[in-house]
């Protein structure tokens, strides 16, 4: 790790507070999220009532997995 050229603000914005306090239970790892992502996306497309609590919690707390899951859903919808 190296120093940045300029100081970063040492402030907690509301989005950061909200993300720090996100309830990410029940626990699901990024690896398990990836494993479930295909079935989750198909369920999201075909059955809007489908609920996977652990996936939902993970996607709330992991913006990278969330982007990829939403992208897969969008791709299926476009198919």
């Amino acid at each position: 790790m190296s120093q940045t050229p300029g100081p970063r603000p040492d402030v907690l914005t509301d989005p950061a507070v909200e993300s720090l306090l996100q309830d990410t239970t029940p626990w699901l790892s990024c690896e398990e999220c990836f494993e479930r992502m295909d079935t989750y996306a198909e369920a999201a497309v075909h059955d809007p009532q489908h609920l996977d609590e652990a996936m939902t919690a993970h996607l709330r707390g992991c913006s990278a997995c969330d982007e990829e899951a939403q992208s897969l859903i969008d791709l299926l919808r476009a198919s």
């Binding site: 295909d38 079935t39 996306a41 897969l72 791709l75 198919s79």
Partner: peptide
Amino acid sequence: RSRFTTWAFKFAIL
């Protein structure tokens, strides 16, 4: 458990 194509897509998206 899903269509193969859906399963394949997620690898490329990741």
